[in-house]
């Protein structure tokens, strides 16, 4: 790759990781611009990872004020009230992230994410959303897809001991390496809307139960007009009822979404720090892969449940996409 060479300082700082992904990848990273929304635990972990990795810039959007809940899985914010007063979540996280790696520009953009136009998103190579409503996910995903350049789009959610990552790299080309062989691969990703519209009965029987459970919770929050995570054990009967309805409509055996799993997701709306670390780590790796073009990107969902310990990739896309 032609481009400026890494500085001596960069080579020294990134020595160990350059040995993993090479100097070209490091150069690409240092020119990338990332946007994140939703400064909770998982995103905090993710931000730490990519700031340490040495991306070009990171822009944070989250105007919310600091709450006890926001602090629970976030290691970027000191729980000191004097420090927190008047600052938004994004601003506090920016201050800490800046210290992690002075070579990365970390900034805050204020405002409502859904009101930002195409020219705003056009500045970024990667957009990551966390704790967003179904409608916001769809909206921002579509906005990114309409841009002339390819923007990698991710959503990430952690509830209780579980986590989910969604990836949309649109049309993505990369060189797949296996031992000595390198093959050119092209992956075609569906949008979030397209992915979740794939009829459940046409999905393979082994698809992670978490996929279905997360969709039920998502639909429930949307129907009730709740913010993500605004759910508690009292909602369980209604959630179970909704699950029954959806399963019937989708002709899916109800046992594919165990009630116990839904109960866990409803009860443990908060993030679980070890899961934040794991999901934030996987997401960091995925974003680094997508920017650097090194490594197999996951398509298009990733699930982790600390109960069974599996971190599973699921490809949820229409086998016969239209057009």
């Amino acid at each position: 790759m032609v481009g400026e060479e890494l500085t001596e300082q960069e080579t020294a700082l990134y020595d160990r990781q350059i040995r993993v992904w090479g100097a070209d990848a490091q150069r690409r990273l240092s020119k990338s611009h990332i946007l994140v929304y939703g400064m909770k635990g998982t995103i905090t972990e993710f931000c730490k990872n990519i700031v340490l990795a040495g991306v070009g810039s990171l822009t944070l959007v989250d105007d919310r004020a600091v709450t006890e809940e926001a602090l629970s899985a976030n290691f970027l914010m000191p729980p000191d009230e004097n420090v927190c007063s008047g600052k938004t979540l994004a601003e506090l996280c920016r201050d800490s992230l800046n210290e992690f790696n002075p070579m990365v520009r970390v900034s805050v953009e204020k405002g409502d994410l859904t009101s930002f136009g195409a020219e705003f998103f056009d500045k970024f190579d990667v957009v990551v959303l966390s704790f967003c409503s179904l409608a916001t996910k769809k909206l921002i995903n579509e906005r990114c897809r309409k841009l002339s350049k390819r923007v990698s789009f991710y959503t990430v959610d952690c509830r209780d001991c579980c986590g989910e990552i969604f990836v949309d790299l649109q049309k993505y080309n990369y060189a797949m390496k296996r031992q000595d062989e390198t093959t050119e691969c092209e992956l075609q990703y569906p949008s979030f809307q397209e992915a979740i519209s794939v009829p459940w009965r046409s999905l393979p029987r082994k698809v992670s139960k978490l996929y279905f459970a997360m969709r039920v919770i998502e639909r429930f929050e949307e129907a009730e007009g709740r913010k993500p995570g605004e759910i508690c054990i009292e909602d369980l009967p209604a959630v179970l009822k909704l699950k029954k309805e959806i399963c019937e409509a989708q002709s899916l055996n109800e046992s594919h979404i165990p009630n116990a799993l839904l109960e866990r997701l409803v009860m443990g709306a908060r993030e679980f720090p070890p899961v934040c670390a794991i999901i934030g780590g996987i997401l960091g790796q995925e974003v680094i892969k997508a920017i650097s073009g090194k490594g197999d990107p996951l398509k298009n969902f990733f699930f982790f449940d600390s109960m069974d310990g599996k971190g599973i990739i699921e490809d949820i896309s229409d086998p016969n996409p239209k057009g």
Binding site: R16, Q17, R19, K48, P274, V275, G280, Q285, G309
Partner: peptide, 23 residues
């Protein structure tokens, strides 16, 4: 790298492994 037996290391794997340790 060869002479110093330098081990490849990235932050993300450490983060994931730390999460798994705590679990």
């Amino acid at each position: 790298g060869i002479a110093g037996n330098i081990v490849h290391a990235v932050a993300t794997t450490n983060a994931i492994v730390a999460g798994l340790i705590v679990i």
